[in-house]
Design a protein around this nucleic acid. Structure first.
Length: 604
DNA sequence: GCCGTTTTCGGCCCGACTGTTTTCAGTCG
């Protein structure tokens, strides 16, 4: 039983209870399902080493759920779940994926029409059986059919690199409209998650109707799912959902905070507000709003104490400002509390506040770029000029090596020739008074046994050596890990490029023990790369966090294969910020001499 | 079902929108 298996059962138990109208329990199960899914280690291991008691220590897990997990681990089944399933034998995960369908409606559809799966749902809707049901109507039936169509066609999350340009384009269009005072991208996109479920855009306007009308009529809109006074939602032709919300000026900070999330982060802030006798919603932070007051209908007596900016909300809650990329409920609220109350009891604990994250624009160089010597599109000089235009002070040319024959990978001889070209180009820069530097490097293949594709003699002539896995993705975790660590122990190897080899949405990472890789990086002084190319984003945020904690240095590289690719560095910086990295953690945020000095020390 | 600077009982984040109703339930984020 993996964490995913356990989470699925717990989630469905919650959904079945919700179906029956049971209060509160559904939320308890759902919460634990999410926790288990996001857990670092396997619940099975937690149970094996610590027993029932250790399982109960997982946040949100009490005796009752712990026992159900124990039963799942021991027998692979849960009696409680089986009984619920027997009562309503439907394919929950399949039906829940239809937009607009939740547990209650799924329950009603089963009870009245015997619908148990997507196929039967489609048949019932097509036959016009749903619109006659109590609580459903013509529109519900159409929405269900449409939901099934969209589910079949696209579905799934979009990579950051796809969603962000689309969102920025929409912002540009809306910006031109009359009466629009301010626009901001919110949601998981503002947190720069590696994949985006939907785009949230916030707008201040005193005349929202024309903005809403324009928004739902944009040319790439395939379907309008909501069109109200303060909120509209559309689905674009490419399947991306976009929400637009209009908020009043005095509530802008509260709304931005609320719609940026994450959900768990918001819940934590609201709890904090309640503890202080305040109420937080998307309109502001209010005093005089305890739950009893709300029930007596006293909301009009509330006094707004913050809301215009995010900063004042965090401040009033007793927190230092938390950057959007950190708002994932992975300790940032506690850290912001500790920082805000340096003399408090909590301050004597372990951590000391929030880090000052690396900023967009902090990079001085790029340590992985390819040219037309191998599979890149442009010459060394064109790449250098593009890097200068992107505001960089140095790049490393890291073409592929001979094992990657399909890219015309460099052998020792051609590497030498390329070095001459780089020398000449540097001389040209020098003569023209430019301080820009092109460094010699390689994206050298790690061979099957963990040795390198180029000789040590060739590698030692280079300024920066990157090592990459491009073959044998199917080795066992043990073999792959040992292979990579052997490469890292080669004293000429400076950086491990795209350490897990994943391609988001296309190829899973190869099996590798990242804790062991990080430990080896610490031991050997090897830099681990954050490959910024949007379908890689490799390292992941959680790995970056571990590197920061271990004191392992990283680089943020474009992996540019053409002069137009340097803009992707932004995604890498976002990823680094999500991993709580600061400038001192990122070697190419340093001046070139300091960066090279660090690599030299590590080789020694 | 879980949890505790509301601590072993009594709460549990909060509001918008839709579609179905005629005051509200369900869904979503």
């Amino acid at each position: 039983m993996t964490n995913g298996d356990i989470a699925k059962v717990l989630r469905e138990i919650g959904e079945y209870l919700d179906m029956q109208g049971v209060p509160f329990k559904p939320r308890a199960y759902e919460k634990v399902a999410e926790t288990v899914e996001a857990l670092d280690g396997e619940v099975a291991d937690v149970y094996r080493t610590g027993g029932l008691k250790a399982v109960e220590d997982i946040p949100g897990v009490g005796l009752s759920i712990a026992e159900k997990i124990e039963e799942l681990l021991k027998t692979g089944k849960s009696k409680y779940y089986e009984e619920l399933k027997k009562k309503t034998p439907v394919n929950l995960s399949e039906l829940m994926a239809v937009e607009g369908l939740g547990p209650r409606k799924i329950g009603a559809l089963y009870k009245k029409l015997g619908v148990t799966n997507l196929r039967e749902l489609e048949a019932a809707a097509s036959a016009g059986k749903i619109k006659t049901l109590e609580g459903f109507g013509e529109k519900s039936e159409q929405n269900i059919l449409q939901g099934i169509t969209f589910l079949k066609s696209s579905g799934g999350r979009k990579p950051l690199g796809v969603a962000l340009p689309i969102a920025r384009d929409i912002v540009q269009r809306l910006k031109g409209l009359k009466g629009v005072e301010r626009l901001e991208i919110a949601g998981s996109l503002r947190r720069r998650k590696e994949t985006i479920g939907d785009v949230d855009i916030l707008v201040i306007s005193d005349n929202p109707k024309p903005v809403m009308d324009y928004f739902v009529a944009m040319p790439n809109v395939a379907n309008v799912t909501a069109h109200g006074d303060t909120k509209s939602a559309v689905k674009l032709a490419n399947g991306l959902d976009v929400d637009l919300r209009v908020v009043p000026k005095e509530s802008y900070g509260a709304a931005l905070n609320y719609f940026t999330g994450s959900k768990d982060h918001n819940v934590a802030l609201r709890r904090l507000a309640i503890k202080k006798g305040l109420k937080l919603n998307e309109y502001g932070l209010f005093r005089g709003a305890d739950s009893r007051g709300l029930k007596r209908g006293l909301t009009q007596k509330e006094i707004m104490v913050a809301g215009k900016t995010e900063e004042e909300i965090y401040d009033t809650l007793g927190l230092t400002y938390i950057e959007p990329e950190m708002r994932e409920m992975t300790g940032e609220v506690e850290a912001a509390l500790r920082q805000a109350m340096p003399t408090g009891r909590q301050a004597q604990g372990r951590a000391n506040g929030l880090p000052k994250l690396i900023n967009y624009g902090d990079l001085q160089g790029d340590l992985q770029t390819q040219t037309n010597w191998t599979d890149g599109a442009d010459s060394v000089e064109v790449m250098a000029d593009a890097a200068i235009a992107a505001g960089l002070h140095y790049i490393v040319i890291t073409d592929h090596t001979k094992r990657l024959a399909m890219t015309n990978g460099l052998n020792e001889q051609r590497l030498l020739e390329q070095g001459k070209e780089i020398n000449a180009l540097n001389k040209k820069f020098q003569v023209s008074g430019s301080t820009f530097r092109v460094l010699k490097g390689s994206e050298c293949d790690i061979l099957a046994d963990g040795t390198m594709d180029l000789s040590d003699e060739a590698l030692q002539t280079l300024d920066v050596v990157g090592a990459s896995v491009h073959s044998l993705f199917n080795l066992s975790k043990k073999e792959q890990t040992a292979r990579i660590i052997r490469a890292m122990r080669n004293k000429h190897v400076d950086i491990l490029f795209h350490p897990t080899g994943r391609l988001i949405g296309k190829r899973p990472p190869y099996e590798v023990d990242m804790d062991a890789i990080i430990a080896a990086a610490k031991e050997t002084g090897t830099v681990l790369e954050i490959d910024a190319f949007p379908d890689r984003l490799d390292l992941k945020d959680e790995h970056i966090r571990k590197c920061v904690e271990a004191g392992v240095k990283m680089s943020i590289d474009s992996d540019a294969h053409s002069a137009t690719h340097f803009h992707v560095l932004e995604y890498g910086i976002a990823q680094a910020r999500r991993g709580w990295a600061t400038k001192k953690d990122i070697v190419n945020a340093w001046p070139v001499e300091k960066m090279l000095g660090m690599l030299k020390d590590a080789r020694a």
